[in-house]
Amino acid sequence: MAEAAIRFDSVTKTFGAVRAVDSVSFDLPRGALVTLLGPSGCGKTTTLRLIAGLELADSGYIEIEGSDVTRLAAAERRIAMVFQCYALFPHMTVLENVAYGLAVNGARRAAAEAEARAMLASLGLEGYEARLPAELSGGQQQRVAVARALVLRPKVLLFDEPLSNLDARLRRRVREDIRDLQRRLGLSIVYVTHDQQEALAVSDLVVVMREGRIAQMGTPTELYEEPADAFVADFMGEANVLAGEILFAEGGKARLVVAGVEVETAMRLAARGAVKLAVRPEAVTLAENGSGIPGRVARAAFLGKIREYEVETEAGTLFVTSPAAAPAYPAGAAVVCRLERVIPLKA
């Protein structure tokens, strides 16, 4: 079994009274793009910096490709990092920036510059070598930062919220570029973001963090369809959390009681009894009448592709999205909510 790219074993990091990373353990496989995802303050950036060596763990054990790096400083680990603000040296040209890592580690100037040129060409930046960072666009700056990191052939490449400085349109293109690069070169990448869409789109593995601990770790599909608790369910894509009771569950279908109404819905296997359920907004269909939970539309909004509704029901306010092609219901209309699919939560 191949060594993990990164192994954390009960790693803790405290700042003053705050436990930014609380006894976190995981194994990240090689050649995969792993995303650390979570809200502000959950510890994902601290974890990234612990991998990089910019912070040293207070306790625990960190291993990169089999070597113990727990007490090594950043300069001694074979990692490279792309910073949120790119951190390109403003007084050096693009070529000098990319060649920096090689120069600092003793390579001769001619050789370092040749390699830098090749790397820039492979990222589509040929002809920009003599420019200064301030003379590049945001997307170009980011590619220079990536080139600078890649030229060192690191064991692990780290990205700290790389898309947050780009405008929305550019984000999709750049995240696809990063994914393609990773696949092409078989890199091990650890990627930090607070945007769950981004995480879902590019990752092989997602680690959802909360208050210094791992809430759940798995593939995007696993996390979306089988969240462990209400927090993960709501973080990975909006979820309505309802209380209900399972009467009967078998063969991918279940009969439940929700808000006093008996409903039949698709659901994975779960034990009978009272349970908390997560229902995705797109998994609720509105109808004028029929079987389902009755309710009244409180607010309706048209968003082009979809319509968003807030529906007041006995079970609480449900957030529902419907495709634009479906019949529209105005505010105040009485509707029936049919639950197509629900997810039972463990906690």
């Binding site: 300069a75 949120q84 600092v104």
Partner: peptide
Amino acid sequence: DRSLDEASATMGAT
């Protein structure tokens, strides 16, 4: 910005 120092450190500079 400190990130310049840190970037330099991650690339192996003392």
